[in-house]
């Protein structure tokens, strides 16, 4: 194609955005609404996931060493425990330290103040990679000679796994439903937009225009509208996210959970928004005029 022709077709695409102002406005609005709604749900899910991650990381397993083991012998177990693949971190706590901790918890009660540390056992505080495998890891710890007892909150682990499954399932269903709904709305909007141009397309064909000549301005139009929608949706999502997370951080829940700052999410959110916006814009306009090109 000659460059003068491409220039003309690009200009026609831009002109058409202005000429069909209402439809352009409607398409951009729908792209924005879909992106913001889907984006918000995804970001909520991502945040819940990361909160679960940090809560899970706090969840610890305690392995008690046989009383008969000296501190030396007890310390020697560390590499064996670390060898278990699901163990992320393990910290040895000698009985004296455990006693101090214990005593500090009951500072005011004289009863515990002078208890001898020898009543307690040396222990390991263990953090796991994946708490859904807690039971298995517990078995493996029991298999280590010298480990007398393992304290693991299996119920808590199961709870986390259940919550995580529900969150992923719900957000997946929501995103799928929203995608279907928005594609449907988008297709109808574009159909409406092109219905008024059916005659125009037929005339162009009668004058001898190739399908590409007709399609090109529509694609330019879809591209521009898609990009515009994506950028506006991104800025909107950004401000909404900032407002909501600031509220959360300032509020009561803020002390319990942490939220991911938007700056950390935007390198993913922006390209995804641009990609979806472009795809919806270009495919929407290409599909919508396809039927009219068969003349």
């Amino acid at each position: 194609m000659k460059s003068s022709k491409i220039g003309y077709l690009i200009k026609e695409g831009f002109k058409s955005i202005g000429t069909h102002g209402f439809m352009s406005f409607a398409s951009v609005t729908i792209i924005i609404a879909c992106l913001v709604i889907m984006g918000s749900f995804t970001l909520i899910a991502v945040n819940i996931d990361s909160m679960l991650d940090s809560l899970e990381a706090e969840n610890q397993v305690v392995a008690y060493v046989e009383e008969t083991f000296s501190e030396e012998e007890a310390r020697a177990l560390q590499p064996e425990i670390e060898y278990i693949s699901n163990v992320r971190l393990c910290r040895f706590v000698p009985r004296e330290e455990a006693m101090e901790e214990f005593a500090s918890q009951f500072e005011n009660q004289a009863l515990f103040q002078d208890v001898d540390a020898s009543v307690l056992r040396d222990r390991y505080i263990i953090y796991l990679n994946d708490i859904s495998l807690m039971e298995q890891t517990q078995e493996e710890l029991y298999n280590i000679i010298g480990v007398a007892n393992v304290d693991a909150h299996l119920g808590v682990a199961e709870g986390f796994v259940a919550v995580r499954n529900v969150v992923s399932a719900v957000s997946l269903i929501l995103v799928v439903v929203l995608v279907v709904v928005s594609v449907f709305i988008m297709a109808n909007t574009v159909k409406l937009a092109t219905l008024s141009r059916r005659e125009e397309i037929a005339i162009m064909k009668m004058v001898g225009a190739s399908n590409w000549f007709i399609r090109f301005p529509f694609i330019v139009e879809g591209l521009v509208l898609g990009l515009l929608g994506a950028i506006i949706a991104f800025l909107l999502e950004w401000s909404v996210y900032d407002v909501v997370t600031n509220r959360i951080i300032a509020g009561v829940i803020g002390r319990l959970v942490s939220v991911i700052p938007f700056s950390q999410l935007s390198p993913i959110v922006l390209p995804v928004y641009l990609g979806v916006g472009l795809a919806v814009g270009v495919f929407g306009s290409t599909i919508a005029i396809r039927n009219y090109l068969q003349v």
Binding site: A202, M204, V207
Partner: peptide
């Protein structure tokens, strides 16, 4: 069968763009 949102000039000119005429 004129194109409603093109001017008289453009209605004629676009037929030349279709065949790839130079500006």
């Amino acid at each position: 069968r004129l194109i409603e949102d093109m001017t008289v000039y453009d209605n004629v000119a676009f037929a030349m763009h279709v065949v790839g005429a130079s500006n």
